[in-house]
Structures are given as structure tokens and as C-alpha cells.
């Protein structure tokens, strides 16, 4: 049982940063960005490039990957999404799916589809009774926790964090009150991208690093963000924990092969039972097109 919770924590560490990033992008840029999985893949390859090619230590590679992914997301926003501001929701939604495939296949063009891994020292798991704790898991949960706590506290306490929350709450009013919303949008793109990049690093520690890695995470990440109440950062963390737990349960009691499908099932159940998400407000209809 403890082992199951521990494994779930490890899986949540991968999903949660990207889910918070997705939520942030949704709140500030105003649409569901389905390219979030591709951003995660960009992060994984950026980490691998620094770690595997240049021989940097993993922590430094992770930091670099966060910066690189943040800038990639900013560039994508400027190139693809900003010109569509004011366009109907479907245009942004579909463009983001198309972008996701462009990024994934640019990675494939650059790195080919072969499977890679980080250059990590082999370490023996720590054993407490019948609980096995791989040091990697401690590392990734630690890094994710520190990053997420920093982001959540920053949103609460820093003036820019407060401004982000205000703009997420009501963009029009934020502009009226003189908050620089365009700079906030750019900031949200970089921060959301950096968080997705961190997810990429952590995913690369657990999964094979290949261009399709991000797409496989798209549904769990978005499901986690929706489950927690879309637009709510703490909710996204909670959603990631729940999705991860459901994944571990499914892997244990059904079949590990269905792990990627759990996000969908959890989401479907959540939509049936609590459409406004766990921490969210009810969503008003009519954003369809």
C-alpha cells in the first residue's frame, strides 16, 4: 500500500508541473493549449542534449531545459497563437494540436525516433522493510515539490504573482486597472513553458526519451488540470496526484498497458460527477466556438 502511494507520488511529480503550466497558460492566454505535451517533449530533449551530449549534471540540465522550453513556448505563442487573438476558440484549439505535431516531428527530424536515456549513475534503491525507494524517485519528487511550492508561493506573495492571478481572474478588468497584461501573457508563456520543461526532465528519468513521449502525456496532463478545476494552480497539483494514484491502481490491478488511458477514464468520471472540477467554479457554457 505504501509502495503504491510512493509510486503514485513519483508519477504525480511528472504530471503536476506540466498540469500547473497548462492551467497557467489556459488562464492567461484563454484557451486549452493541446501542445502542452509537445512542450514536455521539448523539455525532455533539451535536458538530454545538455546531459547526454554536453555532459552537464542533471540538475543544471534541468534548469537549462526549463529556460529553453519557456522560450520555445514564448516563441510558439508569438508565431502561432498571438496572431489568432480574437479568433474563435476552435481556431486556437486546432492550431495547438497542429503545433503539437509540428514540434514532435521537428524533434524527430533533429533527434530521430530512437530511444534514449539520461546519463544517470546506477543507484541501489533504499529499502525500508518491504518498501523500496529508488533515489531517482526521491530526486524527482523533491525537485517537483520545490519547484511547485516556489511557484504557488510566488503566485500568492510576489506582486507579479498577484498580477498573474488577477489577470487570470479577469483580463479585461486587469487591463482597465493598468496592469501590463501583455507582459503578463509573455511571462505566463515562459513560466508555463518552464514548468512543462521540468515535467520533460522528470518524464525522461522514468520513461524512454523519444519524440512521442509528450503526446502520451497530453491527456493525463490536461485531465489533471481539468480535474483540479481548470485555471487553478493548486487544483492542478491535486488533480495530478489523483490521476497518478488512479494510474498506479490501474497498473497494479488491471494492466500496466492501460496506464495512459487512465487519465481519460478519470476525466470522464469526473465530468459525470463534478463538472466544475475539484477546486473550480462552475464553467459557464457557450465557449464552444
Amino acid at each position: 500500500m505504501m509502495q503504491l502511494l510512493l509510486d503514485a507520488l513519483g508519477a504525480a511529480a511528472v504530471v503536476a508541473p506540466a498540469a500547473v503550466g497548462f492551467s497557467l497558460l489556459f488562464a492567461l492566454l484563454g484557451f486549452a493549449n493541446f501542445a502542452v505535451g509537445a512542450y514536455v517533449a521539448v523539455g525532455a530533449f533539451a535536458t538530454w542534449s545538455a546531459n547526454g551530449l554536453l555532459g552537464w549534471p542533471l540538475l543544471a540540465s534541468a534548469a537549462l531545459a526549463a529556460v529553453v522550453t519557456g522560450l520555445v513556448v514564448l516563441a510558439c505563442d508569438a508565431a502561432v497563437f498571438r496572431p489568432l487573438r480574437g479568433a474563435p476558440g476552435w481556431a486556437l484549439l486546432i492550431s495547438s494540436v497542429a503545433l503539437s505535431f509540428v514540434l514532435e516531428n521537428l524533434l524527430r527530424l533533429a533527434f530521430r525516433g530512437e530511444v534514449r536515456g539520461f546519463d544517470l549513475p546506477l543507484a541501489r534503491p533504499l529499502v525500508f522493510g518491504d518498501l523500496r525507494v529508488p533515489p531517482d524517485l526521491l530526486w524527482s519528487v523533491g525537485v517537483a515539490a520545490i519547484a511547485l511550492v516556489a511557484v504557488l508561493l510566488g503566485l500568492r506573495l510576489l506582486p507579479w504573482g498577484r498580477a498573474l492571478r488577477a489577470a487570470a481572474d479577469d483580463m479585461a478588468l486587469a487591463a482597465v486597472r493598468g496592469i501590463p497584461v501583455d507582459r503578463l501573457r509573455a511571462g505566463a508563456a515562459v513560466l508555463g513553458g518552464a514548468l512543462a520543461g521540468l515535467s520533460g526532465t522528470l518524464a525522461g528519468m522514468n520513461l524512454a526519451i523519444e519524440p512521442g513521449l509528450g503526446w502520451a502525456l497530453t491527456v493525463p496532463v490536461i485531465a489533471a488540470a481539468i480535474l483540479g478545476g481548470i485555471g487553478s494552480a493548486p487544483g492542478a497539483v491535486l488533480g495530478a496526484l489523483l490521476i497518478a494514484l488512479a494510474e498506479e491502481l490501474a497498473a497494479r490491478f488491471l494492466s500496466p498497458a492501460y496506464r495512459p488511458g487512465v487519465g481519460f477514464v478519470a476525466l470522464a468520471l469526473a465530468l459525470l460527477l463534478r463538472p466544475q472540477g475539484l477546486l473550480g467554479r462552475p464553467v459557464a457554457g457557450g465557449r464552444d466556438r
Binding site: 493541446f34 476558440g89 497530453t218 491527456v219 481539468i226 488511458g261 465557449r287
Partner: peptide
Amino acid sequence: RLSGDYLAIVTLGFAEL
């Protein structure tokens, strides 16, 4: 009864399943 974003992710998840 929800907005288009939800239907988008639900249908995408369904295809993966």
C-alpha cells in the same frame, strides 16, 4: 453541457483509449 474544450480532451482521450 460543458464548453468545447472539455469535449476536445474527452474525445482525444477516447481515441487514445
